[in-house]
Design a protein around this nucleic acid. Sequence first.
DNA 1: CGCTAACGTAAGGCTATGCTTACATATACT
DNA 2: AGTATATGTAAGCATAGCCTTACGTTAGCG
Lengths: 106, 106
Amino acid sequence: MEAALRAIAEPRRCEILRLVRDDELSAGEIASHFEVTRPAISQHLTVLKEAGLVHERRNGTRRLYSVRPEGFDEVKAFFETFWDERLEALKREAEREEKKKRGNDD
Amino acid sequence: MEAALRAIAEPRRCEILRLVRDDELSAGEIASHFEVTRPAISQHLTVLKEAGLVHERRNGTRRLYSVRPEGFDEVKAFFETFWDERLEALKREAEREEKKKRGNDD
DNA sequence: CGCTAACGTAAGGCTATGCTTACATATACT
DNA sequence: AGTATATGTAAGCATAGCCTTACGTTAGCG
């Protein structure tokens, strides 16, 4: 999870994700969209892959990258549960208040 | 947006967000939950505040922090539109394919 | 006022990270 | 086998980020 968030938080990687979101692109094609050198992009791709956000498929000497939706699902789930737990906590609090009120009616 | 993602991606800040998600806590109360020094937490709180993820309310000499749901909404919206745009792109691609197929029936 | 409590801010150290220039690897093609 | 193409990996540098200690600031209280 944390790896995925850190990976997405980097602007260049976020841009790469946009590129491979719609099309499956080779490392070279991806790199051609940026000003930085090819190795820099290669390193970003490694980070994204290890974070589970992209999928790598080899075809001959080329490596084709595409977005991996399951990785994003994980992040989305994090945000969902974050608020679910909040609601749970608020509900428990409300019940506690209710009980207190009934116990010693101040 | 990017600021919010970077802010959340940091483990300590993520933990802080969990703390102030359910309760409004003072800077000192938040700091007491961690091993690191109080100034370190203060700096994290500044980052979270500038990212729009927490709200600061002053009460006397204390500063009370609580989560700011709108900040999270922004991040959630990012993920939503990310996939919406993807679907749009896929749809356009499909239509292009369809047209091509009809044009020269190979 | 002077003092204390609860903070934020500044300056500096250390590590992580993003980038670059080499270099290594691996697949295809002749 | 020998060369070219597409790519990852290594080493090193510069900057950003997290932490600590020291100091500034603001609100309450005698």
